[in-house]
Computed example of a mutant assay.
Amino acid sequence: MASTIDFRHLDEGLGGAKRKRKRAEEEEAVELAAAEAMDVGEETKHASKRAAVAGDGQNKPVYGRPTYDGVLAGKVSGRKWKAHKTTRTSAMKVVGRKSTLEEKNREKEVKRAYKERMMELKEQIRASKVEKRKKNEERLRIKKENELRGQAVQKVTNPKTIKKMSKKQRKLLRPAPN
């Protein structure tokens, strides 16, 4: 019979104390370090909450308007503002030298020749496909004729014989090749 007592949530578990002393020592070390950090006389702020400008030199020259509020927060680097734009993004694109009229005409000629060659090749492919299709159809027609020639046939001259036949038998009848 299974036990109704649940041992899973006990600290020791079924195997006795495991790493309990080590864990306790680690926790004490972490608490000690936290207490030492709090005992420091100076007020320590988190890196993201430090003042952006040092307080000792208030008469420093300022160039332009800063786009930040004096408190660094957010990024690890401490920068939460964007640099001022000096040029438009569209002006940053490098425009190559313009081609001359002769170069343009040469490019057009090459393009036209390329298109013509492509059209020729496509027409060749289409013509070869049509030719293959015709050859295949002719081959199948000849094959069918040869099969019919090889069969034993019987001519039905009396129309009453055809009337006596069942519908299925009539469907099997074919006109004899000349």
Rank of each mutant, 00 (worst) to 15 (best):
K160G: 05
I162D: 03
I125L: 04
K45L: 15
M92I: 15
I162A: 02
E138N: 13
K49F: 11
R21T: 09
K134R: 15
A83L: 05
A83C: 06
K160H: 05
R19P: 02
R106K: 13
P159Q: 03
E25Q: 12
V153T: 06
A24S: 14
M38W: 12
K155I: 00
Q58R: 13
Q151A: 10
K22F: 00
A176N: 06
M119L: 13
R97K: 03
F7G: 11
P177F: 01
W81F: 10
R88K: 12
V53F: 02
E137H: 12
A152W: 05
A47C: 04
T87S: 14
A127Y: 05
P177N: 03
T89S: 11
G150K: 09
E107V: 14
K20A: 14
M38L: 15
E131D: 08
E43V: 06
E137G: 03
A52K: 07
L101E: 08
P159E: 00
A83Y: 02
K85S: 11
Q124T: 11
M92S: 15
T86S: 13
D39L: 13
R174L: 01
K163S: 09
S48R: 12
K22L: 05
R133F: 15
G16T: 05
M119E: 15
A34K: 13
K75Q: 11
R141A: 15
L121P: 05
K143F: 07
L172S: 06
G78I: 02
A35F: 03
R21S: 08
F7N: 14
I142D: 03
T44C: 07
K60S: 13
P177C: 00
I162Y: 00
T44A: 10
E103L: 07
K20I: 15
A24I: 14
A54C: 05
A29V: 02
E138Q: 15
E138H: 08
D39G: 11
A73E: 05
L140E: 07
L140F: 05
R79Y: 04
Y114C: 10
R174M: 02
P61G: 02
N158W: 00
R170D: 01
M1F: 11
R21W: 06
